[in-house]
Design a binder for these strands. Structure first.
Length: 109
DNA sequence: AAGGTGACCGGCC
DNA sequence: TGGCCGGCCACCT
């Protein structure tokens, strides 16, 4: 299951600082506009096995918790974000621009 | 092997 | 941050 593609996405997600969030497109862009942001989301789907992947810090470009539906419970994702100081309301991140973190082109360590 | 799917994005109305 | 449509690419059956 260690497809390099997923590992690449995980590597970026792991680098997301606390209290910051990024978008799927940003990660895809960090991969060099690799393929499509869709694959990032797909990789996140598999990230359920990876506890090191803070998928809750990854939202869509609108700052909407699109993936919240895939988390356990109903508002677990929001809880985690708020726990890091990120304000969320109605599945929507407040001050999205302020907490947005653009992933650098950091490769595998 | 081919088709369907998906936690999206950008462009357009 | 309205709402809809096409495109993109890897994964699954």
């Amino acid at each position: 299951m260690e497809d390099n593609f997923f590992e690449r996405v995980y590597a970026i997600a792991k680098q997301i600082p606390e209290g910051r969030v990024t978008s799927y497109g940003a990660i895809a862009k960090a991969l060099g506009t690799a393929r499509s942001a869709r694959m990032v989301g797909w990789a996140m789907n598999a990230s359920h096995n990876r506890a090191d992947v803070p998928a809750h810090r990854v939202v869509n470009r609108s700052g909407l918790l699109s993936g919240k539906h895939h988390f356990q419970g109903t508002n677990l994702m929001q809880q985690l974000l708020e726990n890091e100081g990120i304000k969320v309301a109605n599945n929507q991140i407040l001050d999205f621009e302020s907490v947005f973190w653009e992933p650098e082109v950091a490769e595998l360590n």
